[in-house]
Amino acid sequence: MSGTITSASGPGRLSGLGVVLWREHRAMLGRWIARLRREPLTIAALLAQPMIWLLLFGHLFAGMANTASVPGDSYVQFMTAGAVVMTIFNACLQGGVELLFDRETGLLSRMFAAPVHRISIVSSRFVYLVALTSAQSAIILFAAYLIGVRYATGLAGIAACLAIGAAFGAGVTSLSMVLAFSLRSHSQFFPITGFVGLPLTFVSSALVPVDLMPSWMRVLAGLNPMTHAIDGVRSLVLHGWRLDVLAATAGALLLFDLCCLALAAWVLRRKLP
């Protein structure tokens, strides 16, 4: 009986698997989009938060920045890269919590009792967050354009910025998943992400050039993957296609992603039935 089933599914197996994975992703993504649509406050926050960083803090720090040497025509132009990467960082760092909520309600167990591929539950979350943060990034870049920021590499450079953001976001999302599957409840999740979020942002090149930092902090900033993502995006915004900078960014983010994905794979393998 089982023999006939295997042989029948033999030739069409790959396309069959493709259809199955597509249906699983469509179901999961459809759910998150349906949920997002019904949370207008969340949508407003997703749009407002990066604008606040860029417009409010951009102008707040601009005065101080006049006394120091900040690359670029204006502080806002300098900070645009920081605002994009910070937004991606925050969204992805919180990105795993939906799965933690599903764990708490029991819906995740219901999914595990279904023949869904475990990878779809995780990868659909990646796809969702990459799409969401890319849209946010595009809006920030457009808003910055409206207030006078010009891009050295044009539209192709903006596409490259989104690719760097996605590579960085994938690693952060993996870490968020690790938290979501390791912690007991969301009351532990938010203090941890809150505790980690701001220091990592300040110990990066988001708001201040690394050259202006004390030397010990410069070392920490160099170890912070956020710095590397920002440096790549900033170079595309301010200077153009500098292949040495982009190669360094790509190398650092690849290493970061590999470490995070390996950790996530190890944790999930132990936690999932």
Partner: peptide
Amino acid sequence: PQDRTVDPLMTARENLTFAAGLYHL
């Protein structure tokens, strides 16, 4: 399950089509 696994932010119909997707319909 005895848990409340219905998604409150989806309609009854959306909850069912979501479940159908989990079973590859």
